[in-house]
Nucleic acid binder design. Structure first.
Lengths: 359, 359
DNA sequence: CTGAAAGCGCTTACAG
DNA sequence: CTGAAAGCGCTTACAG
């Protein structure tokens, strides 16, 4: 007998005698059903391309072997993951503790639901947003809170992966959705100043990176808005105290206690509702009446701010809408429909009960 | 001149003359740097295996071409994604609107942060949890709220993908973390009964699937707990009104208004805090005093329940801990360390201000 | 209606 | 120190 072609002769048995099959592959099913791998693929994805009988047989064998097409193999071949990544500025625990992000993700989630995408939450890897990028198998990214760009935008560009920027510094030509942070902050600062407050304290979000020359993110814009309002009454940012605080209720609390231990302000302007809650907690614990002795304002207008006591005076930004538009933009970019969309969203001052005239 | 081997001769030029390179691959870099693809790979992942000079050259060429190793190709080869999937029972919008899930995800997120995993939120595809499974590129799943198994567990098993069950019906041999739902519900029902309430209404979570014989999930356990308590005073579940409501504040509101339009209960036992908030909203709008005219209790003890007015009497379950343990179990399973862990978590009755003796 | 081949990009033994 | 080959699993033109 002539020897069979060595390549096939040496390989087939090796496969056949595998002890533990591990996960069966399409090759295994093809062998067991006596068909080619293409036939197996067709049985799953393109039924009309093979006869019903063949298909049934293949499916039966697959069932018996416990075969199921490998997700990664499929994605590599398709070049698509049906997943949207959210590139986050902090760890998952911090993000998910923050109601702001829940709202934002909810907006993005609405779009994912509609379009059949999954949502990959991608926190920094070893404290680096940049390092996290190569480990996310996604069709595109929503990039959040990139106050300062450490090469993320360039990396995304060179990967040719679509992205949209949120709560970030602007980049020419990059899709983004912005909020009128400057206008919102100006409005609330002006409101407080018109009420007669002059001893203002600002609870800002931080800590900001040490060397930060080109800083032009939302935070900088809010501070600029406050500066605008101060200028109208002949003051500058140097005339107010600014504390930089991580965005948690507990940190707002702590910072406020420190603030009150010095010369107490007549009003605290927090750059986030969550921080404002903490400020009110601290003032209440100190026996300081809000707003009668000290006024407090927030930024965001989270749902709970209307239920909070005193009901929080704050700046509303359309968080859910922002998430929805970001996801919509991203999907357009993924589909190649619209390459550089941007949108500016307005804010509005919501006057409730937590601020009044100074005592 | 002898012709070069046809295979290489016919291919190399084709690659070389590509007009738009698309994303460059390792092959492109290898060609441009005059090395093999392995060398390119080594330059990125195994620097010590090649000379410094070669490495630098490769990296320079890669930089120039804008090459970056493809994530999916890498994952397929590595057989690992560094991602944990959360298989969800509802759309992303609903999930992220629910503070319960935010807390749960926060717990899971703590573990992801520590272990360097991303978190893939996987909602049902075309209303099917089962259909969503093949589209998630993950190392394992946390399966949530699988009140009734429609083949998901079998599918996960056949895929050989690790998973842990949460808020779900039990499955022999499957890792899971449970909460003592029955005990918790019994406690709060007993509390209400001891207060003297007999006209009870239950705001349950639903709608439950029509045909549901083998139903033994957390909901069934909570109902069983209520039944236990009722039995102690000679009542059955038929003696109370049970409304099945989707878990949103608005739905709790609506259901309560309907409840009150009939013969009003003296106490409303909600199987979720969110539903309890909605109930209180409705009662307040109807001018019914809580708890003086109608008592209301919740289940979960979300953070906001302590801030809610009246402060909510409820059953505490350790949500963040549940998320953390689920993720820990999953990662153990992924690493093959512990194959079938389970854990039962206790509940406790938190007595606050929203329930009192019947009028 | 079906199969052999090429290809999606990558990495890792295995030889030299 | 480096390269040719095999393989991670899959799918889709292209021939028959």
């Amino acid at each position: 007998m002539p020897p069979r072609k060595p390549s096939s002769a040496s390989k087939a048995p090796a496969r056949t005698f595998k002890t533990k099959p591990g996960k069966p592959t399409s090759t295994d099913v093809a062998a067991a059903a006596g068909v080619s791998r293409s036939a197996v693929s067709f049985a799953f994805n393109n039924p009309q391309r093979i006869s019903t009988a063949t298909r049934e047989r293949i499916l039966a064998v697959a069932e018996e072997l416990g075969y199921t097409p490998n997700t990664l193999g499929r994605m590599l071949q398709a070049g698509t993951t049906n997943s949207i990544g959210v590139l986050l500025p902090q760890g998952l625990a911090q993000i998910l503790e923050n109601p702001y992000y829940s709202r934002f993700l909810m907006g993005a989630g609405q779009v994912c639901d509609r379009e059949g995408y999954t949502l990959l939450l991608t926190p920094p890897l070893q404290d680096s947003v940049l390092k996290a990028i190569p480990y996310a198998a996604v069709d595109g990214f929503i990039v959040c809170g990139l106050e300062i760009d450490r090469g993320e935008v360039a990396e995304l560009d060179r990967r040719g992966i679509p992205f949209v920027l949120i709560d970030s510094d602007r980049h020419e030509g990059a899709p983004h959705v912005e909020v009128d942070d400057r206008g919102g902050a100006r409005d609330v600062a002006r409101y407080l100043l018109e009420l007669g407050h002059r001893r203002l304290a600002v609870l800002s979000i931080g800590p900001r990176p040490a060397a930060d020359p080109g800083h032009r993110g939302p935070l900088a814009r809010r501070l600029a808005g406050i500066t605008d309002a101060l200028a109208e009454v002949g003051l500058t940012l140097d005339d107010v105290r600014v504390a930089e605080v991580p965005v948690t209720r507990a940190d707002g609390y702590k910072a406020t206690r420190e603030l009150m231990s010095g010369e107490p302000p007549s009003a605290i302007l927090a750059l986030s509702d969550v921080l404002a809650y903490g400020a009110v907690d601290a003032l209440q614990d100190l026996g300081v009446a809000v707003p009668d002795e000290v006024s407090v304002t927030g930024f965001d207008d989270l749902a709970e701010s209307a239920w909070f006591r005193p009901r929080l005076t704050t700046v509303r930004q359309p968080i859910v809408t922002k998430g929805r538009i970001a996801a919509d933009f991203l999907i357009s970019a993924i589909r190649g429909e619209d390459q550089h969309p941007h949108q500016m969203l307005g804010t509005s001052l919501i006057v409730r009960d937590s601020a009044t005239n100074p005592a």
